[in-house]
C-alpha cells in the first residue's frame, strides 16, 4: 500500500475572487478522498495576499472547525522578519507553530517586501534550522538565483524547493542536492520522462517529496508517475510519504 502525503497544495479565495476548485478546506479534503491522498501540507491564498497574521489565522480556524482535518492537514506558518516587532519572537513563533501542529514555513519576500539575508531573517532561520523545520523555496516566486543565494547564506537550512518548472529542472536542482544535505524538492512540475528513477539513481530517494501542485494540477498525475517509476518499492514509499513524514517529525 502506497500512502501519499502531498507536499505542495494551496487553497482559499484571493482578493479578486478568482474561481478556485478549493475555496475552503472542505473541497481540499474531498479532492484528497477522491484520488486517495492521505495527508497534505497546506497554505492559504490569504497568507500571501493579506499577510502572515490573518492568513495563518484563517487556515488554523478552518482546520479547527473541520472534522478530521487535524489528522490530515499540516498547515504552513507564514513569517516575515521579526525586527519590526510586528510578529512574535522566533521562540514564540516556534511555540505557536508546535501548538498548531504546523510543520513547515512559507515565505513571500518579494510580495511582503523583505530580503532573504541573514540580517533580516537570520534569527528566525536559526531557530528553524535548530528545530529541523523546513522552509519552502518556490522556484516560480523566488527564482533559481535567489534559491542558490539563500542556500549559500543558510547552508544548513531545511529547504523544500517547490514549483520547479515544467522545463526539466535537473541542471538546477542536482547541484543543490549535492551541495546541501538538508535540501529537498517536490514533484508537482517534475514531469520529465524517467526523471524520478534517474534522480533516485544519482542521489537516492531520500530527498524527493511527492507534491501535486493542487489545485492547479491534478493530484493523480504524479501519483501514477511515482507508482510506476523504475525504482524499488521502498524508494516509492519514501517519495510518496516517508520522506515528508520523517521531515515533519522533528
Amino acid at each position: 500500500m502506497l500512502e501519499f502525503f502531498d507536499a505542495n497544495c494551496t487553497y482559499g479565495r484571493n482578493k479578486t475572487n478568482e474561481p478556485t476548485p478549493f475555496p475552503t478546506l472542505k473541497e481540499v479534503i474531498e479532492d484528497m478522498d477522491r484520488v486517495g491522498v492521505a495527508k497534505t501540507t497546506l497554505w492559504h491564498a490569504q497568507q500571501l495576499e493579506s499577510g502572515w497574521e490573518i492568513g495563518t489565522k484563517i487556515i488554523l480556524d478552518e482546520i479547527n472547525a473541520t472534522p478530521g482535518a487535524k489528522e490530515r492537514i499540516s498547515p504552513s506558518w507564514c513569517v516575515v522578519p521579526t525586527l519590526t516587532g510586528e510578529q512574535e519572537s522566533p521562540d514564540k513563533i516556534l511555540e505557536n507553530m508546535r501548538k498548531a501542529n504546523a510543520g513547515t514555513v512559507r515565505i513571500f519576500p518579494e510580495e511582503h517586501r523583505w530580503e532573504l539575508y541573514p540580517v533580516a531573517i537570520g534569527d528566525l532561520f536559526d531557530v528553524f534550522i535548530q528545530n529541523h523545520i523546513p522552509v519552502y523555496l518556490p522556484a516560480n516566486r523566488l527564482g533559481w538565483d535567489r534559491i542558490y543565494r539563500t542556500m549559500m547564506l543558510f547552508p544548513n537550512l531545511y529547504a523544500i524547493v517547490s514549483n520547479c518548472g515544467l522545463w526539466g529542472p535537473d541542471r538546477r536542482i542536482r547541484p543543490l542536492l549535492k551541495a546541501y544535505k538538508n535540501l529537498y524538492f517536490e514533484t508537482s512540475e517534475y514531469w520529465a520522462a524517467g526523471s524520478i528513477a534517474d534522480t533516485v539513481n544519482a542521489v537516492g530517494p531520500e530527498r524527493i517529496l511527492y507534491g501535486s501542485g493542487a489545485p492547479r494540477y491534478e493530484r493523480g498525475a504524479m501519483m501514477l508517475a511515482i507508482k510506476h517509476a523504475d525504482i524499488s518499492d521502498d524508494a516509492k514509499k519514501l517519495i510518496a510519504s516517508g520522506n515528508l513524514e520523517r521531515l515533519l517529525k522533528h
Partner: peptide, 19 residues
C-alpha cells in the same frame, strides 16, 4: 501526447485518469 521525453507517459495518463 506527452512531448516525450519532456514529460512522462505515466504523468500524462495519471492526469487523464484524474479528470
Amino acid at each position: 501526447g506527452t512531448d516525450m521525453p519532456w514529460f512522462d507517459e505515466h504523468q500524462g495518463i495519471g492526469g487523464l485518469l484524474s479528470a
